[in-house]
Write a protein that binds this DNA or RNA. Structure first.
Length: 89
DNA sequence: CACATGACCTAAC
DNA sequence: TGTTAGGCCATGT
């Protein structure tokens, strides 16, 4: 599959794609995983810019507090909540 | 190149 | 426990 975006975004998306079903990762963890521990802010941006949702499990990415944060894809934050609840069942 | 934006994070009140 | 303020970073205008 070919991801269309900047180098940074590609890395982020690829890392997100590695998240196993039913699991969640924080934006910070993701940032560290790709080698940009301080770019967690941009990581969140990359997710919002992800045009491959929900093909890319960006809904499994949450804040460090444990809150869901947000979801720009169709369905909004509610959709994100549902998907997670369903995957964790 | 300078400025504005956002699905963030931490500390302080 | 809820809100505010400052710092951080890639992107788009």
């Amino acid at each position: 599959m070919k991801l269309d975006g900047t180098k940074f975004q590609i890395k982020v998306w690829k890392e997100i794609a590695k998240i196993p079903y039913g699991e969640t990762r924080t934006y910070k963890q993701l940032a560290e995983a790709i080698g940009y521990p301080k770019s967690y802010r941009a990581v969140a941006n990359a997710c919002s810019a992800n045009p491959y949702a929900p093909h890319i499990p960006c809904h499994r990415v949450i804040r460090s507090d444990g809150t869901l944060g947000g979801y720009s894809a169709k369905g909004g934050i509610d959709k994100k909540r549902r998907l997670l609840k369903q995957e964790m069942s």
